[in-house]
Deep mutational scan, measured.
Amino acid sequence: VFVDDHLLEKVLELNAKGEKRLIKTWSRRSTIVPEMVGHTIAVYNGKQHVPVYITENMVGHKLGEFAP
C-alpha cells in the first residue's frame, strides 16, 4: 500500500496529539489507511483543495477518487 511519507507523518502526528484539523495535500495517489479515519483531508483536484472527510468505508481507496 502506498502513502506519501509527508502525509502519513502529518496524520500520525495529529493522532498522537489527539487533534483533528484540516490537512492539505497534493498527493491524490496516496491510499487511504485506517490511521486517517476521522480526519478531514483537503485533496487538490488541479484547481482547488476539496475537503474530504475520511470514513471507514474509504480505507483501501485512493484520495484522488474522492476529489473529482
Rank of each mutant, 00 (worst) to 15 (best):
V1G: 15
V1M: 09
F2R: 05
F2C: 15
V3C: 11
V3P: 05
D4N: 04
D4S: 04
H6L: 15
H6I: 15
H6G: 13
H6M: 14
H6A: 14
L7Y: 00
L7N: 01
L7I: 05
E9W: 07
E9V: 10
E9Q: 14
V11F: 03
V11P: 01
L12K: 12
L14I: 04
K17N: 10
K17Q: 08
E19N: 08
L22C: 14
I23K: 02
I23H: 01
I23N: 02
I23G: 01
I23Q: 02
K24V: 13
K24F: 15
T25F: 01
T25N: 02
T25V: 02
W26Y: 15
W26S: 13
W26F: 14
S27Y: 07
S27F: 06
R28D: 05
R28W: 07
R29K: 14
R29P: 08
R29V: 13
R29T: 11
S30N: 02
S30G: 02
T31D: 08
I32S: 00
I32A: 04
I32P: 00
I32C: 11
V33T: 06
P34N: 14
P34W: 11
E35N: 07
M36A: 02
V37Y: 09
V37T: 12
G38V: 00
G38C: 06
H39F: 07
H39P: 00
H39T: 02
T40I: 10
I41A: 01
A42G: 14
A42T: 03
Y44F: 13
N45Y: 08
N45C: 11
G46V: 04
G46A: 10
K47S: 12
K47W: 09
Q48S: 13
Q48T: 13
Q48H: 14
H49L: 08
H49F: 13
H49S: 05
H49A: 05
V50G: 03
V50A: 09
P51N: 12
V52E: 01
V52D: 00
V52L: 10
V52G: 00
Y53T: 09
Y53S: 11
Y53W: 11
Y53I: 13
I54C: 14
T55W: 10
T55I: 12
E56Y: 12
E56S: 11
M58D: 05
M58P: 00
G60R: 05
H61G: 08
K62V: 13
L63K: 00
L63C: 02
L63V: 04
G64V: 06
G64R: 12
E65D: 06
E65K: 13
F66N: 02
A67F: 05
A67T: 04
P68E: 09
